[in-house]
Amino acid sequence: MAPFHIRRAEAADAPALARIHVQSWRETYTGLLAPDFLERATNDAARQRCEES
């Protein structure tokens, strides 16, 4: 296994972290949450809110 380095997230990491957050919700909660709720929780507006947090 290749070595890796763990560092604190920086503001520049926000877009990638928001994409990961949204994708993980979609993969984890599909079939468990109402589709309309999941869509609202993972749409572009939700990703942007996550990115800005």
Rank of each mutant, 00 (worst) to 15 (best):
D44H: 12
I6W: 02
I20E: 11
A16Q: 15
P15G: 06
A45Q: 11
E27G: 13
A16W: 10
F37H: 02
A41F: 08
E10I: 04
R26P: 02
A12H: 04
T42H: 05
D44L: 14
R7K: 01
E10Y: 00
L17E: 06
R19Q: 14
C50H: 08
Y29Q: 04
R26I: 02
R8T: 14
R40T: 08
H5M: 00
A18R: 00
H5Q: 07
A46E: 06
E39H: 14
D44Y: 08
A45I: 08
Y29R: 04
R19C: 08
E39I: 03
R40C: 01
L33G: 01
A9L: 09
A45S: 09
V22M: 12
E10L: 07
H5W: 02
C50S: 10
V22Y: 06
D36W: 10
Q48D: 13
A16K: 15
A2F: 07
P15K: 09
W25C: 10
E51S: 06
D36F: 07
R49D: 10
R26C: 00
D13M: 05
G31S: 08
I6E: 04
P15R: 10
L17Q: 06
C50A: 13
V22F: 03
R7N: 00
T30A: 15
Y29T: 03
E51L: 11
Q48F: 05
A18V: 00
R19M: 05
R49Y: 03
N43L: 06
P35T: 02
P35H: 01
V22R: 13
W25K: 12
L33R: 07
A11L: 13
N43C: 12
S24C: 07
I20Y: 10
A45L: 07
Y29I: 07
R7I: 02
R40L: 14
E51C: 11
R19K: 14
E39T: 15
D44M: 09
A12P: 00
V22G: 03
T30I: 11
E10P: 00
P15C: 08
A2S: 12
G31A: 10
H5G: 00
H21R: 13
W25P: 04
A34W: 03
A45R: 10
T30H: 10
A16C: 11
E51T: 01
R19E: 15
E27H: 11
R26Y: 01
A16H: 14
E52T: 12
T42N: 05
R26A: 02
P3F: 09
S24E: 14
T42V: 04
P3K: 12
R8H: 13
M1G: 13
P3T: 14
A46H: 01
